[in-house]
Structure formats: C-alpha cells, structure tokens
Design a protein around this nucleic acid. Structure first.
Lengths: 113, 113
DNA sequence: ATTAATATTCGACATATGTCGAACTATCTA
DNA sequence: TAGATAGTTCGACATATGTCGAATATTAAT
C-alpha cells in the first residue's frame, strides 16, 4: 500500500477519492461518493493510459475499488483499507498526539542529527 | 513519507523501530527504545552502506530521528510523525473499522472489477 | 599515535518505475 | 450495423531507485 501511495499522481488520485463515503451516508450510483476514471484524467493532466496504469496499481494494492457503469468506470476508496492503515499507525503502544505533560515522550528531548 | 515506506527494507527498519517508546515509559539512553544502525544491518542482511542510505531516506522523510552515542548511532521513530499518519487515515469523515450494522458502508455492496 | 569499530559518502551498475502513443476492447447511440 | 465514447493493454524509452564495494570520517581503546 505504501508503495502504491509513493507516487505523487497516485497519491493525488487517492486523496481525490478518500473524502467519499462519509459515515452515515449511503453510497448511491450517482452520488459524488465516487469518481470516474475520466474525471481523474482531467484533474491530473496526464494521458488516460497512464491514469489507467495508476488505477490498476491502487486497485492491486487494495486501496481502491472499481466497477463498470455503462461506458464509464467508477472508482472509490476501500474504507476497510483506510481503516487498516489507520490502525497501523494508531498502534496500541503509541503515545497519543497530544500526550499529557507528565508522560511526554522522551524521544523528543534528545538532540538529533 | 509513503515514498520512504515504499521500500521493503526501509519498511522493515521502520517496523523494527516503531514498537519503541510505549506510552508512560521513559526513553533512556540504554533502553530497548531505540536501535543502533549496526543492529539493523544484521537484521536486514544488507551491507552497512545500504542501511545508511535507507536511514537517511527515513530521516529526511521525517519518520525517524538519530543521534550519535559514542561510536554507534542510535535511532528511533519520531512519535509525532506516526501520530500525523494516524490522523491522516483516521479521517473525521471516515467510517470506523467496525461500523454498526445500520450504517454500514454501501461501497462494499457493489460488485467490483 | 595506531589500530579497531562504527557509520557515511561516493561512484557504478542493474533493475524498477512513470510516462507516452498506438492499437485494442467494451459499451452506448444513431 | 456503424460510429462515438471511455478505458485498457502493450511496447518503447528516459529517469529514478536499490544495491554493492571502496574510500572516507569519527570515536574509542590500546
């Protein structure tokens, strides 16, 4: 997944799609929940074949899902993949972003290279 | 940061370091909270110069920090970077990992490519 | 002062990656 | 059925990346 997100254009695609599917809303075929490949082509200003190439990479990484809808193909972020990545970085052993003053993380105190 | 984590060996280094610094513990110079570059060289089975190369990439990405300690150089994950990544994927608009049955995400229902 | 231990920098090189354009497939519409 | 629209696949090619070995710091120990 990190490999898939390491490319600037693929990251843009992902960011474009990630704000879909807010909680409590229903995904409907015509909602703004997902985008078509052609939309992304316009946004990124790269040729369709390259976009398609990137979509395939994102899909094979498990980050997005796609479905044909008529002539177009719609795509959206897989919410489960995002949740898994969230858990990965929100490790049980990890100090919270704003830790109480008394238990601040000592790694920050050291002078680093 | 994704670019830095996209390489298998760099990801291994990151995973090796990420379990340091549990909340409520103090980071001490001799604790297992951080590792030395030589340790990572042995674990990864690649030559020191390559490890050094990867450490530099991780450091420039803001994922790890390093400090000289005698002949060795110790390194640890920057907790703030991990927290930022956690926030990135735990988006406000994102459905939780185990959402209640009533508001399950419809993106999963569609048949995909 | 030498030597040993630890890590970095540099140059070389093979492989991976990103991009394009042309050809192709699939679907809709007239 | 023919043409238009939307994407994909393939081949080519330039660039980026990962790895190594040799040379170079930097520090500690003798």
């Amino acid at each position: 997944m990190f490999q898939a997100l390491s490319n600037p254009n693929r990251l843009k695609i992902f960011l474009q799609l990630i704000d879909c599917c807010p909680p409590g809303t229903r995904w409907e075929p015509d909602s703004a929940c997902c985008a078509f490949v052609g939309d992304l082509t316009r946004i990124l200003e790269i040729v369709p074949s390259t976009v398609s190439h990137h979509m395939k990479a994102l899909r094979q990484a498990g980050l997005i899902k796609m479905r044909r809808r008529g002539k177009k193909i719609e795509c959206w972020v897989d919410p489960e993949a995002v949740a898994a990545l969230g858990r990965f970085f929100n490790r049980p052993g990890q100090a919270p972003a704003h830790s109480p003053a008394g238990i601040q993380n000592r790694c920050n105190g050291a002078q680093t290279l």
